[in-house]
C-alpha cells in the first residue's frame, strides 16, 4: 500500500505556559519546543503498522518552515520512506486554504491511502484533513480507532460520543483521520535517527503552485479566557499545601 501521511510541526503547549505577543496576534514562541502534532504522530504510527502488515511505502508531507524538517526526519527514523516539505513562505491561517495547498501537491502523487491526525494542537479546527479529502474527491472517515485491510477496502472502527463505536467499510483510495491512542507510539533508535539526518527531502515552494492565497476567515486577536470560578490558590511548601488540603477535605465532609 502506498500511504501518504500529512504531518505538522506544532509548539508543545499542553505542559507549558503560553503568553501572548503585545499585538495579541500570536503567542510568544521562542521558548516553546516544536514537535510533531500529537494526533499526526498517531497517523504516522498507523502508517508504520500498516506498512509492516501489508507492505508498501510511506511518504510524509508537511507544510511549514525549515524547522519542520525535524519531524520529517523523525518520521524517516521510524520507517517512513519519502518526505516532502511545502515551504510556508507566508503563514496561512484558513484551514481550507491549507487543504487546497496540500491537495495541489498530493494530486500528482501515486497513493492508496492518506492518513492525517484528527486536529492540530495549535489552531485545532479539525478542518484541513476532511477538506483535503474533498478537494481530492476521496471518500473519508474521521476519528478512526482501528483499521484493517480487506481486498480493495478498509474495515474501520470510528469513535462516536460516549464510548460508542461505529463500524465502517470504506473503498480505497481514501483518507482517514486518526484518533490519538490507536496504537502505542514507537521510538526511533539512535542509529536510525543518525541515518535520517542525511536523507533527502523534496522541497516545493508555495509560489510554484500558482494558487490564489485568499483566506475567508481572519484572526482578530487572541485573549486569555476569563476564569469561570474564583479559584482559591493554596500556597506554601508541599507540607503546608498538604495540611491545607486535608483541612479543606475535612471541612467539606470528605475526610
Amino acid at each position: 500500500m502506498k500511504i501518504i501521511v500529512c504531518i505538522k510541526s506544532c509548539p508543545e503547549t499542553a505542559e507549558s505556559e503560553i503568553k501572548l505577543t503585545s499585538d495579541k496576534n500570536d503567542i510568544i514562541r521562542d521558548k516553546l519546543v516544536y514537535t510533531i502534532n500529537e494526533s499526526d504522530n498517531y497517523a504516522l504510527e498507523t502508517a508504520l503498522v500498516l506498512k509492516e502488515k501489508y507492505g508498501g511505502e510511506i511518504t510524509l508531507i508537511t507544510f511549514g518552515d525549515k524547522k519542520s524538517e525535524d519531524i520529517l526526519r523523525m518520521g524517516f527514523a521510524k520507517g517512513a520512506d519519502y518526505g516532502i516539505r511545502i515551504e510556508e513562505e507566508k503563514e496561512i491561517k484558513d484551514p481550507l486554504l491549507v487543504a487546497q495547498i496540500l491537495a495541489l501537491v498530493i494530486k500528482n502523487l501515486n497513493f492508496d491511502l492518506i492518513l492525517t491526525g484528527i486536529t492540530s494542537s495549535d489552531r485545532g479546527y479539525g478542518i484541513t484533513n476532511v477538506a483535503l479529502a474533498k478537494y481530492l474527491n476521496l471518500p473519508f472517515t474521521t476519528l478512526v480507532k482501528k483499521v484493517e485491510k480487506e481486498d480493495n477496502f478498509l474495515l474501520i472502527e470510528r469513535e462516536l460520543e460516549g464510548g460508542l463505536i461505529e463500524k465502517r467499510k470504506i473503498k480505497l483510495p481514501c483518507l482517514l483521520t486518526i484518533q490519538t491512542g490507536i496504537y502505542p507510539l514507537r521510538y526511533a533508535s539512535i542509529l536510525a535517527v543518525k541515518r535520517a539526518v542525511s536523507k533527502e527531502i523534496k522541497l516545493i515552494k508555495l509560489s510554484e503552485l500558482n494558487l490564489e492565497l485568499k483566506e475567508n476567515i481572519s484572526l482578530k486577536e487572541y485573549f486569555i479566557p476569563k476564569s469561570e470560578r474564583e479559584t482559591l490558590f493554596l500556597k506554601g511548601s508541599e507540607e503546608e499545601i498538604a495540611d491545607n488540603l486535608i483541612k479543606i477535605l475535612k471541612e467539606k465532609g470528605i475526610l
Binding site: G124, K220, Y222, F223, I224
Partner: peptide, 8 residues
C-alpha cells in the same frame, strides 16, 4: 492551543 487561549 487546547483551551489555553481564546481567539476572535
Amino acid at each position: 492551543y487546547g483551551g489555553k487561549i481564546c481567539g476572535k
